[in-house]
Nucleic acid binder design. Structure first.
Lengths: 335, 335
DNA sequence: ACTGGTTGATTAATCCTTTAATCACAACCG
DNA sequence: CGGTTGTGATTAAAGGATTAATCAACCAGT
């Protein structure tokens, strides 16, 4: 039995319309009346009923975060710090803008997308021909893409890191450490992020060696083993767990890291500073990225034009797994 | 402009009441009419408007997950993997029961708790005198506690691991490995989980040595250093990051693990299998636990009585950080 | 004094669904 | 045949907020 707008109206001795106008800053209300209404609302602990407001305005005050998966898992959260940080930051940012945020299961059917009662959606690494897109467009729901989208509607925003530059930085670093055959291990995805990284890689590496992780092996151990068997002396992984997967694969094959193989991976996991050896990581700052996406979405919902933020920075943290000890030229060629 | 119940009524040539009854299985509707309504609804892609339904029934179809923090952080996600798994499982389970789930920021004020439009709340490690409790009780919103609560309302459920047994298992294991001075490092919390573990520890250890992590040091490095300086030869951490914090502290003090110091920590982080040395962990299976909590909450909302599930199992994974190499009696005493 | 414009408030419709109350009709019983 | 019971549907109210349309009062101008 929370206080309704009628209770406030009665207490302030005005109509409900005046209460609404006074509290929302709409219509015409004298200063004195506004104060009276505010006080009454405060005294009664009045909070607008969200269902009533949603019914009338069509706005729910809710945002949704959608994560697309490709593998068999309902969530592709193979225990990655990336998602935790991202969810955390998205939720906090949404609240800061006055929205609640709900996280969608990866397996949403078309009628479920139809029925979804949200004001806006953040889509993470939306794949090609994402079934959600046409439905959301049709419903007039703005989208903020985290990761470059395949198509962009008029009310859509997007944010992304500068993956080309990041990939180039990693490849050059591995080269500087005398890697001669650099392999790339990707996720299963058909997202543009994977594609951009792969293209940049191909443009830089004369003899590309690309493999994707298996659906049942989130840390990519089998994929790492394949590329190592194929002769790679450096592995760069686009998925968080690949540092561990590659360490395991190297050990199984009797290869020393970093003496025989160099390893680097995209990851936000702080524990890579503590593995044996510590693993070089590329951080994508998911918190900053998604916060920007949520803010863009909130701005769009406030009537501001949609915005685009490509080229967000990344950071390469070089650790022992990709640091060859100081070597003379003789050993260099021997690699 | 999605189809409303009026559109379906017109298409099926019945009243809206009949549509509602037919689709919800309420009231009295003939089989033939029910089929006609179903077909019309299907054809028009009708999905009940959640705001309209919420306004009428007072049910929103939304659950909230509340995480209480004690430190300065908006989220106490220092325990990365634990929360990821937990949030993931909670969301998936909620969806399985037909609810959406929203994650609450830790810093919710009383009026915000008042206005929160949800059918039920899951509270994680609710502290003593949690301000949310009286408000939710007053509003008749059922609570499912993950972690034993300080007080239980008639519609509240709770689930928890058997922390006493788990703590005892860890202590005994460390003793078996010849630890003579076992220290306990806790979070900042006033939650019952911390308290239960500490009490069990005190009952088993003749000379207790307890410290809590600092608010600005989520991995507890400073706390680990303090207890090691105080003479501990084994550290058991109740927070996920403490494995890393203790490894760092030991290294800084020139102590070898496991030769000079044994380390074990509560954690879901798989990368502890890859640290140098690998760290012994106690898993609390947060996914199973929270799934049970969400299910209990959904059941309560369906009219079933609230339920209580204490004593959920844990698992101790012994790794090198707490495994003394086979030693003769001479070395044992020298420990 | 009449007109026109401004201000500050109210009235009433609207959003969509659920559900208690009601009604029409047919079958059955005494 | 009048009265009761049961079935299958409809009518109308309710739930809480927003907002277009309307109204009353006042002031200024001619």
């Amino acid at each position: 039995m929370p206080a309704t707008i009628f209770d406030v109206a009665r207490a302030a001795e005005v109509s409900t319309a005046t209460v609404s106008n006074a509290l929302n800053g709409t219509g015409r209300v004298s200063e004195a009346t506004r104060r009276r209404v505010r006080e009454a609302a405060e005294r009664l602990g009045y909070r607008p009923n969200v269902a009533g407001r949603a019914l009338r305005t069509g706005r729910t005050g809710m945002l949704a975060l959608g994560v697309t998966t490709y593998g068999p898992h309902e969530w592709n959260f193979s225990e990655v710090a990336f998602y935790t940080q991202l969810i955390t930051a998205a939720t906090a940012t949404a609240h800061r803008h006055g929205y609640a945020l709900t996280i969608l299961p990866a397996t949403l059917t078309e009628p479920e997308w139809q029925a979804l009662a949200v004001d806006g959606v953040i889509l993470l690494d939306s794949p090609q021909d994402d079934p959600a897109i046409p439905i959301l467009r049709d419903r007039g729901i703005p989208i903020a893409f985290d990761g470059r989208p395949w198509s962009l509607g008029p009310r859509d925003s997007w944010v992304d890191n500068d993956h080309a530059a990041a990939t180039e930085q990693v490849i050059r670093h591995l080269r500087d450490q005398n890697a001669t055959r650099i392999a790339l291990v990707t996720a299963y995805g058909t997202d543009l992020w994977t594609r951009t990284c792969a293209e940049t890689y191909r443009a830089l590496v004369p003899d590309p060696l690309i493999d994707a992780i298996d659906a049942d092996d989130p840390e990519g151990r089998a994929a790492a083993e394949r590329v190592l068997r194929a002769g790679a002396d450096a592995v760069y992984g686009l998925i968080d767990g690949l540092g561990r997967g590659a360490l395991a694969a190297a050990r199984d094959l009797g290869l020393r890291v970093p003496d025989d193989v160099l390893i680097a991976t995209c990851s936000e996991d702080p524990s890579y500073a503590w593995t044996a050896p510590p693993v070089t990581t590329l951080s994508l700052f998911p918190t900053d990225t998604v916060a920007l996406a949520v803010t863009a979405l909130a701005d769009t919902l406030s009537g501001f034009p949609a915005s685009v933020h490509p080229g967000l920075p990344t950071r390469l943290t070089v650790r022992e797994s990709s640091s060859r000890r100081e070597t003379g030229p003789a050993e260099k060629t021997g690699g």
